[in-house]
């Protein structure tokens, strides 16, 4: 079983976590066209390289971000959402 390092709880088995999928940018509803909004709804970053995802440590309900290689499954780093400059 893979290990994921929670910024709050340290390294834990990955079955303690729930993945909430790649980070999406929030378009502004006021300025976004219907077509772009639909794209926002259904499209997810599915590239084979490094993706940035939301994860939840389920027992502690802690949400954080992880950079993970979607092909090798290597976790490059995990960090807190407050780490603003770290967000892509």
């Amino acid at each position: 079983m893979k290990i994921l390092t929670c910024p709050m709880n340290g390294p834990r088995n990955i079955n303690e976590f729930q993945c909430f999928g790649p980070v999406k940018n929030d378009p502004d509803p006021a300025t976004t066209s219907d077509a772009d909004w639909a794209r926002h709804l259904f499209r997810v970053d599915n590239s084979r390289g490094v993706i940035t995802e939301w994860w939840r440590h389920v027992p502690s309900n802690y949400f954080f971000l992880a950079e993970r290689n979607a092909t090798t499954n290597e976790v490059i780093r995990t960090f807190t959402p407050q780490d603003a400059e770290a967000r892509p």
């Binding site: 939301w54 939840r56 309900n61 949400f63 959402p81 407050q82």
Partner: peptide, 13 residues
């Protein structure tokens, strides 16, 4: 619902 609430607020802060 609970998980979703926390997920959204992780973004909204």
């Amino acid at each position: 619902v609970y998980a979703d609430m926390l997920f959204w607020n992780a973004q909204w802060q």
